[in-house]
Amino acid sequence: MLDFNKGAGLVPVVIQDNQTLEVLMLGYMNKEAWEKTKQEQRVTFFSRTKNRLWTKGEESGHYLEVVSTSIDCDNDTLLIKVNPVGPTCHTGSRSCFKTNYNQNFIFQLEKIVNDRFINPTEGSYVNRLREKGINKIAQKVGEEAVETVIAALNESETDFVNESSDLVFHLLVLLREKNIPLSRIAENLAERHQN
């Protein structure tokens, strides 16, 4: 149970992207904000400058949809993993912190591929590939794997990086076609590493 007494009625709340694990922002909650967040499954803070409850996105529409919550070992700090709807920072950035988001772009790319499956876009390469069926998608993964091997053995580092990128992209499309999220691959790798 959160201890609101240590911080004069407020606890710090770290907001983390559920998919990329990027830290998006830090805010504060009082008991009322915490209860509202749990009830609505949307993050509400206590704004120290406005001196009132403030649901992130109430004006912009850039809500923070709650996925999970964790209380720290001292019961005085909260970690909330969210699915952000749009940018989190008031400046229009994904995060209020200047972090190296590129290292997590593969998760954003997975979201883009998923969105193409749910909302087909005319002219989208993902949709053209999907229309050809799973055999073609699997074939493209095989072709890109061979091209990656060739680039690793005979071509420049840039060529190797480009072919590796093509391979990962096509693998993401194949994973989505099979309804397997990238997180499941990560979990499997972690389990295999422990054995």
Rank of each mutant, 00 (worst) to 15 (best):
Val66Pro: 06
Gly9Arg: 11
Asn135Lys: 15
Asp74Tyr: 11
Thr148Gln: 02
Leu26Gln: 07
Phe45Glu: 03
Ile150Cys: 04
Asn114Arg: 06
Leu2Trp: 07
Val66Ile: 14
Phe97Met: 09
Ala145Gly: 10
Phe97Trp: 14
Val14Asn: 03
Pro181Ala: 00
Phe107His: 12
Pro12Trp: 08
Val43Phe: 06
Pro84Met: 04
Lys136Gln: 14
Ala152Asp: 02
Leu79Trp: 07
Met29Cys: 08
Leu10Gln: 06
Gly9Lys: 11
Phe97Leu: 15
Gly57Asp: 02
Ser60Ile: 05
Lys6Met: 09
Ile112Arg: 03
Phe105Ile: 10
Phe160Val: 00
Glu110Gly: 01
Ile185Val: 15
Phe169Ile: 11
Glu122Phe: 09
Ala8Glu: 15
Thr99Cys: 05
Leu10Ser: 05
Cys89Glu: 08
Met1Val: 13
Lys56Cys: 04
Leu109Arg: 03
Phe117His: 00
Val146Phe: 11
Val149His: 06
Glu187Ile: 02
Leu167Asp: 02
Phe117Ala: 00
Asn114Thr: 09
Leu171Cys: 11
Val113Tyr: 01
Gln103Met: 14
Met25Ala: 11
Phe169Gly: 00
Ile71Trp: 03
Ser124Arg: 02
Glu22Arg: 04
Trp54Cys: 00
Thr158Gln: 13
Asp72Leu: 08
Phe4Tyr: 13
Leu26Met: 14
Glu155Ile: 00
Leu21His: 10
Ser164Cys: 07
Leu175Glu: 01
Val43Trp: 06
Asn135Cys: 08
Lys38Ile: 13
Val66Leu: 13
His193Ala: 13
Tyr28His: 14
Asn119Lys: 11
Thr121Met: 09
Leu171Trp: 03
Leu78Glu: 06
Thr148Ser: 10
His193Asp: 09
Gly9Leu: 08
Tyr63Lys: 01
Thr20His: 03
Ser164Gln: 00
Thr99His: 10
Glu147His: 10
Val141Ala: 08
Thr77Met: 15
Val82Leu: 05
Lys140Thr: 11
Val149Lys: 10
Ala33Phe: 07
Ser47Ala: 10
Lys81Pro: 00
Ser95Gly: 08
Arg192Thr: 08
Leu172Gly: 05
Glu163Arg: 10
Val14Phe: 10
Ala190Thr: 09
Ile180Arg: 01
Ala151His: 04
Val173Ser: 02
Leu2Met: 12
Asn179Ser: 11
Glu155Lys: 14
Asn114His: 04
Thr55Phe: 05
Leu182Gly: 02
Tyr101Trp: 13
Glu144Lys: 07
Glu191Gly: 08
Met29Lys: 05
Met29Ser: 04
Glu131Cys: 04
His62Ile: 01
Asn18Ser: 11
Phe4Cys: 11
Gln19Gly: 00
Ile80Trp: 01
Glu155Ala: 04
Glu143Lys: 09
Glu32Leu: 09
Arg48Pro: 10
Leu189Gln: 05
Leu129Gly: 02
Asn119Met: 01
